[in-house]
């Protein structure tokens, strides 16, 4: 599994495109971070008057890191779209399946390969809030928990991207379909529905409603469980898909 993960990670790490994405992301992160910082400096006097006022850490995690997590809805599918679809097209998936590893190891290996790369990208976003230690006493617990939030969204988006990549041989279709699903999942509970039961169910399913706690220094069991379960669901469905291909493939020989 580690070999597959390393192979996947290296493939991304050696692609110029990934580095260009990283450069563009970094410009965006830096610009967004600095404007959030400026906004805080402008209103810090007023914020201090509130009950339970936020410090710069809480302000930055909520106003900068939380919106940044929405970028993952696009970036993860772009990074995962080739994971299976490309192998199907080039015929290398048959080769991979003949290797002495189980199907679940293939799925997990591919998942962790891309996930490690996304985690590195996320560290870029976190680098700037971390540098606040040079100017103030940063609230590390809140900052690290918001990194956990980013990693949770990344895991969900990567696993969803993987599932769609395993369903088709067209990379672009995989990326668009997974992004669409993730965006729908993100906004699903935002609109008022007449039935409170449905509203609650949609709210439970919505990704955005499970993010707040991570970026405000609040550990919430329901939010952790949400990300663990949905990521497991997508990985599980990918495994079933790959197994099914395996059976059909072996039957075919």
């Amino acid at each position: 599994m580690l070999t597959i993960a390393a192979r996947e990670f290296n493939a991304l790490f050696r692609s110029p495109l990934a580095w260009i994405i990283a450069a563009i992301l970094q410009i965006f992160f830096a610009w967004y971070f600095l404007s959030t910082l400026e906004q805080y400096i402008l209103i810090q006097d007023k914020l201090a008057l509130q009950d339970h006022p936020p410090g710069i850490t809480a302000f930055v995690t909520f106003r900068y890191l939380a919106p940044c997590s929405a970028l993952l809805l696009i970036i993860c599918p772009l990074l995962t779209m080739r994971s299976y679809a490309d192998e199907y097209r080039q015929g290398t998936f048959t080769l991979l399946r003949t290797a002495p590893v189980s199907n679940s190891a293939i799925v997990m290996g591919k998942f962790f390969g891309v996930y490690a790369f996304v985690a590195l990208l996320l560290c870029l976003a976190l680098l700037m809030p971390l540098c606040l230690v040079y100017i103030t006493n940063v609230d590390f617990a809140t900052l690290l928990w918001s990194l956990a939030g980013l990693l949770a969204v990344a895991a969900l988006c990567t696993s969803a991207g993987m599932l769609f990549s395993s369903l088709t041989r067209h990379t672009l279709v995989a990326a668009i379909a997974s992004s669409t699903l993730l965006i729908i999942l993100w906004v699903i509970g935002k609109h008022a529905v007449s039935s409170p039961v449905i509203q609650q169910a949609l709210g439970t399913l919505a990704t955005s409603s499970h993010l707040g706690s991570f970026f405000q220094g609040l550990v919430s069991s329901r939010d952790i469980v949400y990300f663990v379960l949905l990521t497991s669901l997508f990985i599980g469905l990918t495994m079933i898909r790959v197994n099914n291909l395996g059976w059909q493939g072996s039957q075919g020989r």
């Binding site: 809480a58 220094g217 919430s220």
Partner: peptide
Amino acid sequence: LSHRWPAEADISATNRH
């Protein structure tokens, strides 16, 4: 089930929540 029995802990420096 996770929504039925939630648990929370406040880890912010000043217990903001």
